[in-house]
Nucleic acid binder design. Sequence first.
DNA 1: TAATCTACCAAACACTTGTTAGGGAAGGAG
DNA 2: CTCCTTCCCTAACAAGTGTTTGGTAGATTA
Lengths: 199, 199
Amino acid sequence: MRPASERRRELLDTAAEVFAAQGYDATTVRRIADAAGLLAGSLYHHFDSKESTLDEILSAFLDELLAGYATVLAAGLGPGETIQALVTESFREIDRHRAAVAIYRKESRHLQDQPRFGYLADARHRFETAWIGTLERGVTVGDFRADLDVRLTYRFVRDTVWVAASWYRPGGQHSPEEIARQYLSMVLEGIASRTRTRT
Amino acid sequence: MRPASERRRELLDTAAEVFAAQGYDATTVRRIADAAGLLAGSLYHHFDSKESTLDEILSAFLDELLAGYATVLAAGLGPGETIQALVTESFREIDRHRAAVAIYRKESRHLQDQPRFGYLADARHRFETAWIGTLERGVTVGDFRADLDVRLTYRFVRDTVWVAASWYRPGGQHSPEEIARQYLSMVLEGIASRTRTRT
DNA sequence: TAATCTACCAAACACTTGTTAGGGAAGGAG
DNA sequence: CTCCTTCCCTAACAAGTGTTTGGTAGATTA
């Protein structure tokens, strides 16, 4: 682990920004250097390689996210409240690591086969356990509909949350908590009017 | 427009498959050639360039999709039924153009700035009009909840539908229509149990 | 003052990229 | 048989890639 100097963190942020905008492979180190105001070779004073830069961005984000999830799960809430807390925590994470989330969504699929990025598959598996476990508990307890396909619902909720990173802009008119509230309202209660009762 | 020979279509399919799996920029023409069983240079007997190959894949998909949407919208259905038909049509399109959908989701964001791929922005705008128009009509008529943020709902529904392309595998246990039915059930009525009434 | 460290530049490196040119084998058409 | 088309290969090209090496200006430390 390198010493995390101020300049280093700055470079890491601009790299993440460029990766998110252009895609990792489409991004050249010269492009990152341009955006940061130095020459390509100078980046190697701070980082070992382009790949390790990506690695650092992703693992920092995932560490924080998993820690947040762990806190929520340890709180001993009911299934419905746990889902709400997980969603809210996710939107906060999007707010703080917007670029990292975008990169994660675009690249994790084909990165996780690489040994170096094996932790991506680990993280994915932990998410799955957390969400699906909570959903199943919710169905048993009666918080959620009994006819749910839990795996399908998991993907539904997960994707719904994370895609927000592709259009969310921090400092906009909606706070993370506000967006979480609206999303939860749709996911939990649906968008159909309640004036017509279902059969 | 080149003559669409059998071999050509075959190569286009494998190219789409590799693009979807690896990402466009990360895919080399030699990799496509490998997968297709010929050498890199030989691809240029069939295609003008790597970029034009991508172009053809995306525009073929979008043409078919927009045609499908147009048919739905011309049917004169109510807002609720229109949404259902649009979702179902989308899942059918995912079933038929899985690779193209995956590519579209990954690359369209940064491709649409390029003049050659300007039609991507056009298509996106048409989707927006179709969905948002229907949702607004639905709120007015009373099919959908009055307190919906229509733009947020649009992104919610849109993303929810298209991300399915990232995990959907044709020939699986769920048909496109079945998946559409379950998705609609969640989106329209929510995943919360109806035993508890909302305030 | 001398030594050390940080952050950077200038210039090159080996390699990969998309693409092209020229040719050749197979098969159908005249 | 000859001509033409289709499909592919061999071999190379220029440009761009991530990365390395050696050096330097400026601050910090001894």
